[in-house]
């Protein structure tokens, strides 16, 4: 199976995205509003403290954490969950089984341009907006490089999580509810609502085990240099890589099961 097979899906994904140019604006507004709520809330908590406050964050540090977490959420909003759920609901998914391509790979190819477009057209302006409004921490070059690598891992994990969410359409027609649950859980346990370091004991332990941490908290730990040497950094990347592999396998197994059920039921 050649990668070239999937190039048309990359361009078609971009084309269908560009038809709705307002989408970018709105994704931006949504993300800015979401970031603003948490930033306002947490800056009120850190108001008055000059040095490191709770969790060892400076006011600028916690702001950076929350804003970049929202940027990552934008990058991860690859629409795979909506589209897969919609195709399952409409029954179009059966058509995909006839094509000589792997459906999960098609979806991955189609979401790449969405990720790129979201990052460039929404993520960067969002970051710029907050950089103007509130003081942010500037990372070291090494931390920034580690962050980029870690973000790449996080997009794979986000893709798998969204694919699994979309595949819930095989089980229920209320995929909207499933997506809401997913969104809530991800935004909490990835660190978009509360920096994970501020969670109390047992909750913190739970967040460390779950894969969602790899979607925002992981890259942010590296970005803000909140790790101990090479070992600390590789622990973060190792957690991400482990979950990325695990989730890819899980997707493959579940997709195969769903596909064979589809063949039996005939759509």
């Amino acid at each position: 199976m050649r990668a070239g097979t999937y190039v048309p899906f990359v361009t078609s994904g971009l084309q269908s995205l560009l038809q709705y140019r307002s989408t970018f604006l709105i994704t931006g507004v949504t993300a800015a509003a979401g970031a603003a709520v948490t930033v306002f809330l947490w800056r009120a908590v850190y108001a008055g403290s000059t040095g490191p406050g709770p969790g060892g964050f400076t006011p600028a540090g916690v702001t950076t954490y929350l804003v970049v977490a929202q940027v990552l959420a934008v990058v991860h909003a690859n629409r795979v969950d909506d589209e897969v759920a919609a195709e399952v609901y409409r029954g179009d998914i059966a058509v995909m089984l006839v094509r000589p391509v792997s459906y999960p790979l098609v979806r991955f190819a189609a979401c790449l341009p969405v990720i790129a477009a979201n990052a460039l057209l929404v993520g960067v302006p969002l970051l710029a907006l907050f950089a103007v409004l509130v003081p942010l921490t500037v990372p070291t070059p090494v931390d920034a490089a580690l962050f980029v690598l870690s973000t790449a891992f996080s997009t794979v994990i986000a893709f798998c999580v969204n694919l699994l969410t979309g595949m819930a359409g095989f089980v229920t027609t209320n995929t909207w509810g499933v997506r809401m649950v997913k969104q809530g859980i991800v935004s909490f346990f990835a660190g978009q609502m509360v920096p994970l370091a501020l969670l109390p004991g047992p909750l913190h332990a739970l967040a460390m085990v779950l894969p969602f941490r790899a979607m925002a908290d992981g890259p942010l730990t590296l970005l803000l240099g909140r790790y101990e040497g090479v070992g600390g950094a590789s622990a973060v990347l190792g957690h991400q890589l482990g979950w990325a592999v695990g989730l890819v396998l899980l997707c493959a197994v579940l997709w195969r099961a769903a596909a064979s059920r589809l063949e039996v039921l005939g759509g």
Binding site: L41, W42, V45, V171, T172, T173, N174, W176, G177, V178, M180, V181, Q183, G184, I185, S187, F188, M193, V194, L198, L199, P200, L203
Partner: peptide, 24 residues
């Protein structure tokens, strides 16, 4: 199942929001 998911989705979301406020 849809009904439970729909109502449950909000329990989860609001539960987590309450939790976040609690953490603050």
């Amino acid at each position: 199942l849809d009904f439970l998911l729909g109502s449950g989705a909000f329990l989860v979301r609001v539960g987590l929001q309450t939790l976040a406020v609690g953490v603050v």
